[in-house]
Design a protein around this nucleic acid. Structure first.
Lengths: 337, 337
DNA sequence: CTGAAAGCGCTTACAG
DNA sequence: CTGAAAGCGCTTACAG
């Protein structure tokens, strides 16, 4: 269509040099006389000039683009997280370039794209992530911030919630409420977060002298939680008094399976506890007791870290850890031995 | 940190010209002798060369970036949509630059950013959108694709689901099942989609000689659906036999309100029908009958439109409309007059 | 405060 | 098939 208007056009029409136009639209505007600034801005507006951020990015290296790497664990909790990132990065005057990365993908191909776009930083929330990816970024001067994934000794910043504490919280709460026959429904994959929950749960339970009675693995999915209930609560099986699901969405499926297939009353006949505190956990049909990671606080820490890694020229890697906490609702009942 | 490796470096070390290196990494590679190609690729790999897409974008105009404008109606249905866009655009070899736009935002500021990034196209799913935004894009040669928002006479492509049919479907289904006292819970804002649903619903109902008995407005939110149930189903009020909520998330809140506050059995004492077919609609605690827009098919149409507007130099504006359909589950019961 | 000029890292006629 | 050179639209010393 029409050719784009450039700073040259604005310069020609305003009768000033292209350098001056450039200064007016950059952070060197204090170098330009106010009346000239106004003149330039006016002609710019009249002829519809928009500075080319791509050209600016090429020169200055400041592309104003942050890469956001997301995984495929679509679910309400994760979606909220992504949304928070996008909003908060935008209010920093930068935009998110989103990369979806799944285990089937060629991780190197994706990281190579990230590098090619000369993003100012990369935030990795995807669980699919290798040391090689991180190193490629670091060699190309792209600061990396890992979200909820702690790996020792990598040249990256890390912000995460302490899932070990999360697991401990669950163990304490169930034990204190008299539960000794506890089922455990975990995520199939051994993500760092999942392992943390398990370590916290098992070690604290062991301190109390008890062990998990049954364990099931599921994807991050309602239907699989439902199916897990059918297997774990089968009348032939050992009688559980409580079940810990390491994600709320699975816990909700589990509750529905227990109630609708076996007619089990929750919490009267079975206690259930989840993890994440997604919106649905508070719905009247569930009122799920769960462990909440302070997602928004974590995102804020990431943004703060982003700012530091962008502005200062420091080579120190930041590690921030936040504690999760218990949200008591109505799915865990006190029982006497 | 370390300086970035450029095509000049690769050229120098390989003993070829920079032009040749450039050709190897662009779509002009068939112009280069295979053995030279291999040589260049090898040294590139050895010294860690990544073509600078920002520089390429500046010259060729092909930034490989598509702007995705999203609104603030966070919810499962919308999140799934966004995710579909990101995934499918990525598999086209392009990335999404996401812009969150809400009614409080300065729309012009956002569209100006979109233009400045020289994106190849803009997909607008946000309801906050003005003619001025669209025109600014079009004047700067950025093709715009409107998702689920039909506005006559704009220089844009449009892909949408026919919400008038959606409303008609609801009217037919409820009437056929014997319902004459129908409540209607709609979205507060007058989006094009919302108006379509209303028109379809009202005009078909009128053909049957009946009118909506009660109407409530809510945000796109579980809690507000819950609250709407309290108001509409209050014992003092006229007795409704069915309620249509124009979004599932509101319908689910409505059901919970009806059940948990007034002990109403659904569907025995009250029928409920939703719109969207979100994942939770099929959960065992709800089994909501609802109207489903073919979201994935719509996204595919958008992608197809994107491809056309990118590759061909056509100036025709595409309009695609898809029909929604009814998903029967267990929240609507046949009653006799 | 302002302008002429070099340069960012590519692509792409042009000439051979 | 390959290279020298111009140029994309900016930023930024440098000189005045």
């Amino acid at each position: 269509m029409n050719e784009r208007v450039t700073s040259k056009d604005v310069a020609r029409i305003s009768g000033v040099s292209q350098s001056t136009v450039s200064r007016v639209f950059s952070d060197k505007k204090n170098l330009v006389k106010p009346e000239i600034q106004q003149l330039v801005r006016e002609t710019a507006k009249n002829i519809g000039y928009y500075p080319n951020l791509i050209a600016r990015g090429m020169i200055s290296g400041k592309t104003n683009i942050v890469a956001l790497l997301i995984g495929d664990n679509i679910g309400p909790h994760y979606n909220r997280l992504i949304n928070l990132f996008i909003t908060k990065i935008q209010s920093l005057g930068k935009q998110c370039l989103v990369f979806q990365v799944t285990r089937q993908d060629n991780l190197d191909a994706i990281i190579s794209r990230v590098i090619q776009f000369h993003v100012e930083a990369a935030i990795i929330t995807a669980s699919a992530m290798t040391e090689h990816m991180v190193k490629a970024c670091s060699e190309n001067s792209i600061p990396v911030i890992l979200y909820n994934r702690y790996v020792e000794g990598l040249p990256v910043h890390t912000v995460y919630a302490d899932s070990v504490t999360g697991g401990t919280l669950v163990a304490d709460y169930l034990y204190t409420n008299g539960h000794r026959n506890i089922g455990y429904v975990r995520f199939t994959k051994d993500t760092g977060e999942e392992i943390g929950k398990k370590n916290g749960l098992y070690s604290r339970l062991r301190e109390y002298g008890i062990d998990i009675a049954q364990e099931e693995k599921t994807a991050y999915d309602y239907d699989e939680g439902y199916a897990a209930a059918l297997r774990m609560l089968h009348p032939d099986k050992k009688h559980l008094t409580a079940v810990f699901c390491t994600s709320d969405i699975v816990a909700l499926g589990f509750m529905d399976g227990a109630r609708h297939e076996y007619g089990i009353n929750i919490p009267q006949e079975l206690s259930v506890i989840g993890y994440d505190d997604i919106a649905m956990a508070s719905w009247k049909s569930y009122e799920l007791t769960t462990v909440c990671s302070p997602t928004e606080a974590l995102v804020d820490k990431v943004i703060a870290t982003l700012n530091i890694s962008l502005h200062k020229n420091n080579h120190e890697f930041i590690t921030e850890m936040l504690e999760p906490f218990l949200v008591e609702r109505n799915t865990v009942q006190k029982i006497s031995d």
